[in-house]
Write a protein that binds this DNA or RNA. Sequence first.
DNA 1: ATAGGGTTAG
Length: 827
Amino acid sequence: MSSKLLTISPHFPVLNTATTLSSSTPSKPELSFPPHHRNFHSLSERTHIPSHVYKHPTAILLELCTSMKELHQILPLIIKNGLYSELLFQTKLVSLFCKYGSPSESARVFHSIEDKLDVFYHTLLKGYAKNSSLEDAFSFFVRMRYDDVRPVVYNFTYLMKALGDNSDLKRGKEIHGQLIKHGFGSNLFAMTSVVNMYAKCREIGEAYKMFDRMPERDLVSWNTIIAGYAQNGYAMMALDLVLRMQNELQKPDSITLVTVLPAVADMMSLKIGKSVHGYVVRAGFDSLVNISTALVDMYSKCRSLGTARLIFDRMDNKTVVSWNSMIDGYVQSEQPKEAMAIFRNMLDKGFEPTNVTIMEALHACADLGDLEQGKFVHKLLDKLKLGYDVSVMNSLISMYSKCKKVDIAAKLFENLRDKTRVTWNAMILGYAQNGCINEALSCFSEMQSQNIKLDSFTMVSVITALAELSVTRQAKWIHGLVIRTCLDKNVFVMTALVDMYAKCGAIHTARQLFDMMDERHVTTWNAMIDGYGTHGLGKASVDLFNEMQKGTIKPNDITFLCVISACSHSGLVKEGLQYFESMKKDYGLDPAMDHYGAMVDLLGRAGKLNDAWDFIQKMPTEPGISVFGAMLGACRIHKNVELGEKAAKKIFELNPEEGGYHVLLSNIYATASMWDKMAKVRTVMEKKGLQKTPGCSLVDLRNEVHSFYSGSTSHPQSKQIYAFLQTLGDKIKAAGYVPDTNSIHDVEDDVKEQLLNSHSEKLAIAFGLLNTRPGTTIHIRKNLRVCGDCHNATKYISLVTGREIIVRDMHRFHHFKNGTCSCGDYW
DNA sequence: ATAGGGTTAG
């Protein structure tokens, strides 16, 4: 008979039936109390609510209460009118504080109640489970057990929900046990919550076991297990269950399908996606906003932009999310221009962008390298008050870095208070990609000193910086760190390492790492193929490319660029031509400007200047600077004034920003002793304000990198270096070296030699030889192409000193040893 | 329901 008390709803409407409640009504089995219940006597006395209480103006006011603010205004009235200890008000207060999200205030009322009805426990537990921490809910549940309040089924469902949300498997299992002990092991609601808990704890097998044992199931329990499979990445299983539920005469609803679609999207499985879409249409759900939005996102992620766009365009009630998904689709498919068009369209239509929209737009701007649009998006932030969203700030830093404005990125970074690991990673990479190696490395050490844990992204960024630095010592150090941090199975990290070792001249180490990798991306292959190419190991490069073609990773446009330029460096003209053909024929890849440039380089370098020129004439698109630049370079190597002039004319029409092409032409004239024309080119250059990039060579000694500019005397050891070069010059001349002074005009012979001796690479080599022990290999990096005389001299230097000298120039490596160079004088 | 930072080439 006491069970009826539980049917007192804490909500107002029921109160009018207070009198009927006290008459006996049959109880539901799971709500029954044992007769020894501690509140047995006091309860029946308290169920009657006198009319002066429920008709009190304050009670009416409380009935009209709709917010926490109003509740706080009514509370003093309750106390003032001496109603605080009335059952009606206790009931309402406990429940309303929970309803408005403050179980702690609810608890204050609860604790003040002398004879606590079970409903108070139930209400407060629900309040804790829904609004507070799992800890609060759990410890209140323990207290409830201690106070000998018998749990009811929805105590378990709320608790299970909180346990699942916190992925607390250990306590989830414990409560599952108690649930069974209390006889709810076959209860539909209880078991659905158990299924959900196991699924949320990623124990999908256990979840299914529970689902399978349920004696009855409803739509919610089917949706729970289907969502469980979907969210654990089993889209196929989820779809199977959708079919199975129909066999068991349970019709899926839109929620069923809207949980399956994101899983399909994550899998990027267009086939499964289409069959879900088919079901959506047959069930007539295709006009629902959330379904079409999920479909747009699914098709976008499956790179089926046409279909995504079709559904998107047909939606007459688009939401921000559907716009965002559409923009993301274009960004992911590397169509940033389209992405920006959609973004602009969205603004025009008056939709207010969210942080996700802004991030997507910034991503597109970064891919385009479009600073102006990037700034436009940046300006929008202030209007939208999104300027304090860390994620947005991270995207901004990345955007500015990719648009070559690393200084702006750095300023944003410095002013940002709430940096996350992502922020640090974006900044380090930004520095690295803009050639600011020192900044990148000091940013990394700052990050470490602030005890921010590094991850694979950090590692990739630092390795990218060190690849640029190309110092073997640092390369080995970071490799050690990769191993110590257990990141040596990460494809991105390992690919960066392969590239870094190749750039340090340690091509065999690079290959060892490459061979050890279990998983490789197309970039991994590209890095290795290009590594061989820049080392002049054309055969190895081609072999690796052929091996790649046998595997499952498909070559991309960059692969072809790498392999063709590898052929170019090694004079493999036939192979290069064949790959160029195959690119379109076998892989459907359209050659871009760079590919044409590489082909002209291939033909031209091999001395087939006329073929190269013909090749340019037959190009289907207008040749760009890089193509004629390759032609001009080839003309310089093969001393062809006529074609060189033709190529240069084209280049100058295109207004290059760099002075390098004028220098090339002037070198061609110099070699041909056409001094007047040479002088003319130099004058034009000056008039246009074009600068010759100064030659600069780097050499690392212990923990420092020393840089030498052509003709510079600013290094502390400068005097010694020049003196050393003098004596070294005598030694190599004795061994057969003849200075190549042909390209210098107007000065005495000894001055010509002095000029040659002040080339940056010679200074760097001399410095390296002076400061290292005999037998040590010298590593040099030069920003331009190594000059002919220096190349020849270095061969002799390696002979007379017995040193190995490795020079990395703008395009490739030269390994000098015993008087010869790995490039075979073909470069 | 949508999301931030990653490797190759130039």
